[in-house]
Design a protein around this nucleic acid. Sequence first.
DNA 1: CTGTTAGCGCATTCAG
DNA 2: CTGAATGCGCTAACAG
Lengths: 332, 332
Amino acid sequence: MTTIIDVAKKAQVSKSTVSRVISGNGYVGQESRKKVLDAMEALSYSPNLIARNLQSGETKTIGFLAHGFIDPLGIFLESFISIAKSYNYYVTLYFTDGDQKKEIDALNQMKYKQLDGVFILTRSNKWEVIEPYSLYGPIATWHRIDSERVYSSYIDHYSGYLRSLDYLYQRGYRSIGHVLGNSVNLNTKARIRAIDDFHKEKNISINEEWIFRDDDRVDNGRHIAQLWHEMKTKTDAMAFYTDSVAAGFISELQSLGYSIPDDVAVIGFDNSEISRLMHITTVDYSIKLQAENSFIYIHNQLNKETIPEQEMSVRLIERETVPIRKHEEAET
Amino acid sequence: MTTIIDVAKKAQVSKSTVSRVISGNGYVGQESRKKVLDAMEALSYSPNLIARNLQSGETKTIGFLAHGFIDPLGIFLESFISIAKSYNYYVTLYFTDGDQKKEIDALNQMKYKQLDGVFILTRSNKWEVIEPYSLYGPIATWHRIDSERVYSSYIDHYSGYLRSLDYLYQRGYRSIGHVLGNSVNLNTKARIRAIDDFHKEKNISINEEWIFRDDDRVDNGRHIAQLWHEMKTKTDAMAFYTDSVAAGFISELQSLGYSIPDDVAVIGFDNSEISRLMHITTVDYSIKLQAENSFIYIHNQLNKETIPEQEMSVRLIERETVPIRKHEEAET
DNA sequence: CTGTTAGCGCATTCAG
DNA sequence: CTGAATGCGCTAACAG
């Protein structure tokens, strides 16, 4: 391997001069510069970034943690990597499989100086155990949490979900099932408030049986389909916390012989690729911007800058899974 | 930041001793070990891996290059990261957007010692420009290429595709459209041979109009759907080189008012999540194993070991998009 | 503008 | 079994 020293020898200058032309810091005379450049060329020298990292104490790489490959990881990751690259950061991916140890392992990479910061898409440890790692570098996440030490991009799930429910209501649906995510998630809590207020406002009674939990998210909504299938009085619409689970629900119901939306209307959340392919009505809340804001936060922390975050909005994407309800059995 | 020296002082030993207990190399007496461990604990010391990397000359991280987020990247990536982790390697992701510069940029990270090896899922530069980088570390890829310097996991696309076509034939389809990927890809070439041989064997004439190219893969099969829609004499079945494009094709046709498989049968390739969700008949060729074999190759190169690769098989997954053809208009 | 010197944090000789 | 010394490749003062 050829090092800065080889280049220095060949160019007949000191290694600091070589360092200066490589890094672009400090003054270098025309002649010396040329000699160095020629020598680099001749030796086909390439700098060893590890050494530079050791010196600077940073690696310019951010860790991205997620359980595994579930929608909408794709768009999120793409946006995140893209904006990171534009600021000269790389991102290394950690799939934790919901394994707490693997997650800690990944977090530790920041402690070991291998990562400058960390973004957590989905976690399995409690926040109490994750937070202390913010000592070693900035942590951002997607799910909303209340923390001074961990950033989370914010969108108003309360009004977003209320919008979905109102839409369902307007279209004639009265018995609406809700599929919610992890119960300790603040977004889930916001949704529950939305459900309560919705029922109060419309003066509909809540049926606890119509509220489904998908805490583990193991099978992308298949078991929810089973549960729905086994219900005596079925809901005529289902609202989901994420598209991929809605997709799995639809897919499984189809296998069971049902027809969507004839047998049940479905509204998703995320506006991810799968919802487009399967014509699922859903809610778009600019995942892209959320990813970018998350990176911007980490970047600002790292570089003590204040690049402003971008505003986000929520909008309904009408497709085919929520038609206007036919009132065959109109309820009063 | 606390370093090995702080620990040494606190434990009243030399820093080499500390280094020995951390790295586990060399002999350390019971007492010294305990003193060091205590000191590490007390100072909550954590090793700086950059320094270790500089010393060892490796980073234990592999680069994973892909254009962006297209199926079946998900399963592939998951398997790759999973097996990498089991061998204590990390993987950093580079989305190149089909941009040659970005790809070179990523490859250069290996030159700069930031990456021990590289896996390329989809590339945009020619192999001639990529190959030279194998000087700096092992390169593996997915698409089959003929090269001494770049590894590619191998599955027999010729017989795999022939199997799909035979299946279609058995089920009564005679006018079969083919959607192929990048034309310089060896897999594509294998498919073309399969198409030729199939037509000869069954004594069907080939209609060039029924062969579609999806070189860019920009819109996941939407434009293929448009082309099909505009054909005067339509095919009664379509065979795809990848599930996500088949999914996009189906989705778009549905938007145009067609019904699948009533109007046209569809067979995919990959057995990826989307095909399961949309009930698309497809071919499984264990992407998981391919990902693992690719990693194993890189690992073997890096560590001069010879962990054996795993055998792969191809099998047809029957779902709902290729029903037995009703012979309303049976052809002779 | 350029060379000398001193580290970054750790691993690894080599003596003892 | 342990300490001292040296170096991984590069950057950053500090003189000159």
